[in-house]
């Protein structure tokens, strides 16, 4: 049946747009690394700086990976920045106070449970009250910001933080800093979750056609809650690592730095290898691309504003390419 047709098809001419949209982001990553290596060979191209880059992007990567899970379902989680701030603050403060008498690991566990509670709240608002995730998480972000400021009296926690919590940001495994290890674990787990489990498949299906997914027996509300919980847990983890690196629990300004970059990384990822789809490997490429730009430009001594301009330009190109190709995939 298909054999005769396939045989008749000629080797199609080079599909430039198709190739670019699949490999464009990876190619730019490689080109940037080569460019910075040639220009700043000593400062840029050495294993210490490469590990440094990974370390610099680790928090962003943790947040962006959680966000990717939400985006597969079409949920925009705008609360990850605020969740990160509040989570990091609580972890350090409660750790310093040994709030529950359970030791630092007990505190971490409780903070992660708090993340689940926030995620479930987000999910319930979205799926049972029918508020769009975009608005719902914008609202919870504001509430969480308020809680952080009120609970902290805007004071930073700096003393008495147990080393077990500080280790999340400052320990090293050989040459590898612990944030990089945490990033690797989070990415691996979420990659497996999205690619290899039925739950991941179902989330993608919901993103593709919610009506069809429901009729195929997929629990849409349940998955909305699950996805928003996963991104909340990642956010808390990222926020805690961020505060641990500095050794201070700050009640504001921690997570907001990463919010837009996390979206940028995920959307660059959706323009990588599988145009039009959010996926962990793509998000990792997006994160690295942003990291290399920041690191390379600052080593070159370029002023910071260039980082923003270059990032914005790359994002537009990436989203454009992934958009045109996903339309083509849909046969439009």
């Amino acid at each position: 049946m298909s054999a005769s047709v396939a045989a008749a098809a000629p080797k199609s001419r080079l599909d430039v747009v198709g190739l670019l949209s699949r490999w464009g982001t990876i190619a730019s990553l490689v080109l940037l690394v080569v460019f910075f290596s040639l220009k700043e060979d000593d400062a840029f191209a050495n294993s210490r700086n490469f590990i440094n880059i990974l370390n610099q992007v680790s928090i962003l990567a943790i947040l962006a990976a959680g966000l990717t899970v939400c985006l597969t379902m079409g949920l925009f989680d705008l609360s990850i920045g605020s969740i990160a701030t509040l989570g990091g603050y609580l972890a350090l403060r409660w750790g310093a106070e040994d709030k529950f008498g359970l030791g630092p690991y007990g505190v971490l566990l409780i903070v992660l449970l708090a993340a689940v509670v926030i995620g479930v709240a987000n999910g319930v608002i979205v799926s049972y009250l029918g508020v769009s995730a975009f608005i719902a998480t914008l609202a919870t972000a504001s509430i969480l910001d308020g809680i952080a400021l009120g609970y902290s009296d805007t004071a930073t926690v700096q003393v008495g933080i147990p080393f077990q919590i500080l280790d999340l940001g400052q320990a090293k495994f050989g040459p590898i800093p612990s944030p990089v290890v945490i990033m690797a674990v989070v990415m691996l787990v979420l990659w497996f979750f999205l690619e290899r489990t039925q739950m991941g498949r179902h989330m993608y299906a919901i993103g593709g056609n919610p009506t069809a997914a429901r009729l195929a027996g997929v629990r849409i509300k349940y998955y909305a809650i699950l996805a928003l919980s996963i991104s909340a847990v990642c956010a808390v983890l990222g926020g805690t690592v961020a505060d641990a690196i500095i050794g201070a629990g700050r009640p504001y300004g921690v997570g907001s730095v990463y919010l837009l970059d996390a979206f940028a990384a995920a959307f660059i990822g959706a323009a990588t290898l599988r145009p039009g789809r959010f996926h962990i490997l793509g998000t990792l490429v997006g994160v690295l691309l942003l990291g290399v730009i920041n690191n390379g430009l600052s080593i070159m001594g370029a002023e910071t504003f260039w980082q923003y301009i270059v990032k914005g330009a790359i994002l537009i190109v990436a989203v454009f390419l992934s958009g045109t190709v996903s339309l083509r995939r849909q046969g439009v």
């Binding site: 039925q198 498949r201 993608y204 299906a205 593709g208 056609n209 997914a213 009729l215 995939r329």
Partner: peptide, 24 residues
């Protein structure tokens, strides 16, 4: 189109949506 297909997804993903139980 409205009730069954996942647009832009592969044939594989479309077919295995309902019964991935069999490959678990």
């Amino acid at each position: 189109h409205r009730e069954a297909l996942l647009p832009g997804f592969s044939i594989r993903e479309n077919i295995s949506l309902a019964s991935s139980g069999r490959f678990l």
